[in-house]
Design a protein around this nucleic acid. Structure first.
Lengths: 347, 347
DNA sequence: GTTAGCACTCGAAGTATGGGAGTGCTAAAA
DNA sequence: TTTTAGCACTCCCATACTTCGAGTGCTAAC
């Protein structure tokens, strides 16, 4: 199976894929012949298609139906045949406005949510944004606040504007003045560090402070160390789930639909779908059976990491049917990822 | 239409509703006759059912099919015929553990999310929790933090443990010491007040400070006043959307399904569905056509407000098909609302 | 190597057909 | 007067059968 393709075979495959993307129906030889300007008769096309089938790029749902591309077929198309369309001007403008314009007064959180919603509506697929390496970002400020008797809240703000808070249990209540003093001290320590770095620093300081017997500061360090042990959770934003319903292939088969929507309820599954994209910055396309979640054979994921500074910080992806319009979706995701990167950069 | 029901009619209606809830199929006279211990023959039941139909409590999908309760029928059932089952012990225990046990170390946010998820899985419907009157809660502490050049973050923690933050634009950068001073001052002002109250107080103070020409404090007040102008957003938690798919009546009709899932994407729609429950503490049942969102004729909402202190703070609701098991769902929602109230009380 | 021609396949859509669940009505029984 | 047995009737549903057409594979001619 799966031999090399000559140019003609490739062109036929391309047309089959593109027609199938458009119509969601099996494609016949006559259609392809027409699409190729009748250089070749349907009969010839049939021969070529039979070859393509033998090589594993196409299948027939049943004898005497047209052909449908397999995952392998789509993969070949995406890797070698795809004519990348540039993103349309108005879409680019919309995205840019959303990513940059609001940056001023919107929290990072809201910005991502709105951005993801826009991408989902532009693509007419479900859009997922994962924010995962929060803890590796350098901090802008750190603050302990009172949050009830026996409880203190540690609020951290990263330089990119992500706010995070965690509750710490603490038997002895600290006075407002104490907290203020601690905060001053903590912020000095934290300047420019990431959370794990801060944690290390705090542990070092604790040894020194122990010697100095400054009870208050020791207490501060103890508290923060406790909070930082946990590590940051991964944030996941999903918008446009309902777009899945627009796909004719799912509207017919409620079982598939169920599986997919159930999967969307579980954060961890979504993260798993996208986490390959976290590796690098390049765009990742997982087609049908290729994707890392078993049981979701009917969906594709187009995702890309985005970075902050010099490391990837999360990923943005579109989830739709295998039959998605990659030539439009891939540039869209690429551009969106780049925009996200720069939006965080310029905060 | 819609006359009074004698006892026999009511009993028949009750059985029709209950059977329909169980089977999702039109109910015939023979079935009812059996259910009632054959005190009455099918023929008699038929007469009664014909009456019930005339009064608007039942309909026939077509001649020679059984009957299905109308919204009016369900309404009558809920108002007068419902035998309220008590919540099963293990379910109560689970809920209690979730609401109380975690209260210590979990943020209010997470607690609500997990609680809602549990309620959804117990009920096998979609569970929504709305947190809307955040701003009326008394504050525990307030804090300004640096959040980038020209930006300051105002973090507020309410006594019930809700954390909120808002970004404020601010041209001149304040030093750490300045912020500390401001925070001390703000916290003194804020003690025991709710956000709007704090806002009023700040505006008062601004007048006085102007006279005193204390530039720093004036600046602090200006910042906070700006942030507080906006009012708190309403938080919405939805869990278990996919449960909708389990209902046979929706699995068949993809159009309905689409409408419902689309509605779930829009926060404002969900809030609208539940906001009747915000009025008081009593349980609210909106059946089919009764519910405030047009176009969602096939779903029912069972919701109840929950309170913090002496006023309702939000609501919790279950959303499912009209044919939901009210006798189980109503006590579940009631109990959940009460638990939420007390969970917030004891923070 | 390409193509016209043709028999063949198979699903989709349309058309009987019988069975059954359930009804309404009537007339007799209680 | 209320209840019930009896019965004709209605209409959905499942099944089977037919037709239609899109599309194929193969063969033989170009």
């Amino acid at each position: 199976m799966t031999g090399a393709l000559d140019d003609r075979g490739a062109q036929v495959l391309r047309h089959v894929v593109e027609d199938y993307i458009e119509t969601a129906e099996p494609v016949g030889s006559r259609t392809i012949s027409k699409k190729m300007g009748q250089q070749l008769s349907p009969a010839t096309i049939r021969n070529i298609m039979a070859d393509l089938e033998e090589m594993g790029y196409l299948v027939q749902p049943h004898t005497s139906a047209g052909r449908v591309p397999t995952s392998t077929g789509f993969r070949y198309y995406v890797d070698y045949l795809l004519a990348r369309r540039k993103l349309a001007r108005p879409e680019r403008d919309q995205l840019q406005r959303m990513a940059a314009g609001d940056a001023g007064s919107t929290s990072a959180d809201d910005m991502v949510r709105q951005f993801s919603r826009l991408v989902s509506s532009l693509s007419r697929h479900a859009c997922v944004v994962v924010v995962s390496r929060l803890s590796s970002q350098p901090l802008r400020s750190v603050n302990l606040m009172r949050a009830g008797s026996g409880k203190v809240l540690l609020v951290t703000v990263t330089q990119a504007g992500w706010v995070e808070h965690r509750l710490i249990e603490d038997e002895t209540d600290l006075s407002g003045d104490d907290l203020a003093a601690i905060n001053g001290y903590l912020n000095e320590l934290a300047a420019g560090l990431s959370l794990p770095q801060l944690r290390v620093k705090i542990l070092q300081e604790m040894k020194r402070e122990k010697a100095r017997y400054d009870r208050l500061m020791h207490r501060a360090l103890l508290l923060s160390a406790k909070a930082l042990d946990e590590g940051s959770p991964t944030e996941v934003y999903v918008e446009g789930r309902a777009n899945i319903l627009e796909q004719p292939e799912f509207a017919e088969d409620v079982q598939k639909l169920k599986r997919i929507l159930r999967a969307f309820e579980e954060k961890s599954v979504i993260v798993r779908l996208l986490d390959r994209a976290l590796e690098g910055e390049a765009i990742q396309v997982s087609i049908g059976s290729e994707n890392p979640v078993e049981g979701l054979l009917d969906i594709s994921v187009v995702a890309s990491g985005y970075r902050l500074g010099d490391q990837t910080m999360g990923s943005i992806g579109l989830i739709g049917p295998v039959r998605m319009d990659y030539s439009r979706i891939i540039p869209l995701v690429e551009y969106s990822a780049r925009l996200l990167s720069s939006a965080f950069e310029h905060r």
